[in-house]
Design a binder for these strands. Structure first.
Lengths: 149, 149
DNA sequence: ACCTAATAATTAGGTAGCCTAATTATATTC
DNA sequence: GAATATAATTAGGCTACCTAATTATTAGGT
């Protein structure tokens, strides 16, 4: 099994492991976790482009996590006064999530910092290599996705 | 802030998020978790190339996790009879971890399946792009590492 | 119109994979 | 030989998820 020594496999593997450890997800800013910011960002963007507030189920689909996960995160954001729940009058089972002014401000600041960091990364890698990286990562995802079925 | 709409940033971000969700780490095979297999693999490789068994502290350094994390994983591997602890006669504070025959067999099988999967990936991406990907991921890691200081 | 089935959200409880702080045993240094 | 450093462990905690069960509401079939 000399293949096991294949240097490309070794390199790739090491880079994956290191990348997974890369802290491109910061812990706890202003008392909120990365997963909470992700939900805030989805709520913010959804409201911006759809004019109507996001439902729990929609957030859950976008983030690819289960609805209970979203509910729990929202419980906490709600407790912190960043977010408000309102029943959808069209479908009274659904709950629309709305940012409070406080939540909106926090989200906007976080988004700004976040995008600046990533603009910096694109700058560091170069436009062309950044595109290439995105493409390759998508390809890796497709490979593993197809394996699983 | 039109920068926020930078399409390269958006693509890169989406590819990162998807990649992080990619199940290139399978859950539970033969009753053991990915993190347990990682420890097994390190023990296996360490013993192969150093002729002497791995210490907890060495495993911890290689996997970049704290010693308590390693201890706990080894507790479980020990309970399953995959691994044995033996005090190092040279330094009686240290513990050398040795695979039992059962542990060795399991590890060898897992390694085989694992490397086949990654050989398949390199094949899918192509040798050149695989190298490029590893290089770019390392660069991303450097960027975030330098930001943090 | 009525009952069944489907859907939205929630609560409760659990798991993986980490961590820090404190403790114990042994080594090293001055 | 005493103080300090190091190796491993135990105990307990945290994040980011999950599944199963429950409640409320809506939609579909007859």
């Amino acid at each position: 099994m000399a293949d096991r020594e294949n240097p490309t496999v070794q390199k790739l593997l090491r880079s994956f492991i290191q990348f997974r450890k890369t802290g491109w997800h910061d812990k706890k800013i202003n008392g909120y976790n990365p997963s909470e910011y992700k939900v805030l960002a989805v709520i913010y963007e959804g409201a911006n482009k759809k004019e109507t507030e996001m439902k729990v189920s929609e957030i859950s689909q976008i983030l690819e996590v289960t609805p209970p996960t979203v509910t729990q995160i929202i419980n906490n954001l709600d407790k912190g006064g960043l977010v408000e729940r309102m029943i959808d009058p069209q479908d009274r089972r659904a709950v629309r999530i709305k940012l409070t002014p406080k939540g909106k401000e926090l989200t906007e600041n976080a988004r700004k910092a976040f995008f600046e960091k990533y603009l910096g990364l694109v700058d560091y890698l170069g436009e062309e290599d950044s595109e290439k990286l995105a493409e390759l990562l998508n390809k890796v995802h497709r490979y593993f996705y197809e394996l699983k079925r």
